[in-house]
């Protein structure tokens, strides 16, 4: 698999590190990792980097993850980038909202590296 640039969006720096580690444990080779602590920072990041995968929390200050997904869908540089939500908000309602807004996958916290592999590889066109 080619190395990719991933954007990890979470207001917790600890969780960003854990998500990055989980991606590597899932066998996803990362060329570069861009971090953002809320949706507004993430919108800026997708416009100034060539992002190929986005992992995004929902509950964040400034701009939450659902709003980020909605706004990203309107930005040319973000169109087509697969977005996978990683969040404690595990209700069916949130899953439907995220997928309707344009997310391609949904992982509930707490999560294992195997769950990351299972949900992220397919959106990259790979078999888990």
């Amino acid at each position: 698999m080619d190395k990719i640039t991933a954007l990890i969006v979470d207001d917790s720096s600890v969780m960003r590190k854990i998500v990055e580690r989980s991606l590597r444990q899932a066998g996803i080779e990362l060329e570069k990792v861009v971090e953002a602590s809320n949706g507004a920072e993430a919108l800026a990041a997708v416009q100034s980097n060539k992002i190929e995968l986005i992992l995004c929390d929902i509950n964040m200050p400034v701009m939450d993850g659902l709003e980020f997904v909605r706004q990203a869908a309107t930005i040319a540089s973000a169109k087509g980038i697969p977005i996978v939500m990683i969040t404690t908000e595990g209700s069916e309602t949130h899953v439907v909202q995220a997928l309707t807004a344009g997310a391609r996958g949904y992982i509930r916290k707490p999560f294992t590296p195997d769950q990351v592999k299972e949900h992220v590889l397919p959106v990259l066109g790979k078999k888990p």
């Binding site: 207001d11 509950n59 964040m60 200050p61 969040t87 404690t88 908000e89 595990g90 209700s91 069916e92 309602t93 949130h94 509930r108 916290k109 707490p110």
Partner: peptide, 18 residues
């Protein structure tokens, strides 16, 4: 989050703060 997700009837109607 894990606690509320285990309870029936909270679907989408219980929000968490940061």
């Amino acid at each position: 989050g894990n606690f509320k997700n285990k309870l029936a009837g909270t679907d989408g109607r219980c929000m968490l703060s940061v």
